[in-house]
Computed example of a mutant assay.
Amino acid sequence: MGRALRADAERSVRAILEAAERVLAQDAGASMEQIAEAAGLTRITVHRRFANRQALLEALAVSAKQQLIEAIEDARPDAAPALVALYRVTANTLRVKSTWRFTLGHATPHTETAAALWDDINARTLRLLARAQGEGLIAPDADLKWTRQVYIALLSEAINRPDGDQDPDALANLVIDTLLHGAGPHD
């Protein structure tokens, strides 16, 4: 979809992506026809926008990752103290992840575009963690790539928590507290 879409086509694509996310979260094997029905569109319209299921999954991956980048940008991670920025990025990320549970929770082959977006997300996360390290929130000798992996795992665990609070702000507190202090006693 290299060129800009007309407003009605853009609405159709958005409706298809939203419906696909909902339907696939319930049934990962759902058909294009089921997705079309959930979007209130014909199967032909869905196939006009997405040639096949793989193209739809790729569009979901790109859209979800673009929203993650927007969530990170909205948190203004370079303008606030690292702890505030880390909290804001975490809460915003959890909001996006709760909307895109299927897409962000399932490994799908990355297109070049999706892979580039993921690389950008990883780079932004590393920059924020480096700021946190520079401000003394993270040990000076901590491996930041490992810390990023732990952070991502904590985000996934928080969003998939079967019981307890699903409020993104409360979960962000839990993630940040666990990342920075672990499960040990607090001084």
Rank of each mutant, 00 (worst) to 15 (best):
G105Q: 07
R161W: 04
A28P: 12
E157H: 09
S98M: 11
P168Y: 06
H186N: 07
R95L: 08
T147N: 04
T111K: 05
A142N: 07
A51D: 10
N52S: 15
D187R: 14
V89F: 01
A114R: 02
R95T: 11
R124A: 14
A79M: 03
V175G: 03
Q26A: 15
E157L: 14
D165R: 10
R124Q: 10
A7R: 11
D163Q: 15
L24Q: 05
A158D: 01
R88Q: 13
T178G: 05
P109M: 09
T108A: 13
Q133D: 10
E58G: 10
I121Q: 02
L171S: 09
D8F: 01
L171F: 10
A91L: 03
K65E: 11
L171A: 12
I35Y: 01
N173S: 08
R76K: 12
W146T: 11
F102S: 07
L154S: 08
R161Q: 15
S156D: 15
A59M: 02
D78T: 09
A79Y: 02
T103N: 10
T45V: 13
I176Y: 03
A107G: 13
H181T: 14
L94V: 00
E37W: 09
E70R: 15
L117Y: 12
A153P: 00
I72K: 01
E73I: 05
L41P: 10
R43K: 15
A153E: 12
A85M: 05
G182F: 03
K65F: 00
S12E: 15
A25I: 00
P77L: 02
A36Q: 01
A80N: 09
T125I: 03
Q67S: 13
R22E: 08
M1L: 11
A64H: 02
R53K: 15
I69L: 15
D74Y: 00
D177K: 12
G136I: 05
Q26K: 11
A115T: 01
D8K: 09
L17D: 05
A28H: 13
N122P: 00
E70D: 11
A28I: 06
L174M: 15
R11I: 03
A71G: 10
T99F: 04
P81G: 01
L117M: 04
N52G: 13
G184K: 08
T42L: 07
A51I: 10
A82M: 07
L60W: 04
T178Q: 13
I152F: 14
R148H: 12
L5H: 00
R95S: 12
E33G: 08
A114L: 11
E10F: 05
N160Y: 10
T108N: 13
A4E: 10
V175T: 12
A142S: 15
S63M: 02
L128N: 03
G105K: 10
A36Y: 07
L24A: 01
D177A: 12
D177P: 01
L171N: 07
D177H: 11
G164Q: 02
Q133A: 02
L83G: 00
D119F: 00
T147K: 14
R148W: 10
A79G: 05
G136A: 11
W118F: 07
L154G: 13
I72E: 06
A142T: 13
A183K: 13
A64Q: 06
A153C: 08
A7I: 09
T99V: 12
S12C: 09
L128Y: 03
I72D: 04
G164S: 07
F50R: 05
E58T: 11
D177R: 14
S63V: 06
T90P: 11
G184N: 03
T93Y: 06
R43V: 12
A4R: 12
F102Q: 04
A107Q: 14
R43D: 13
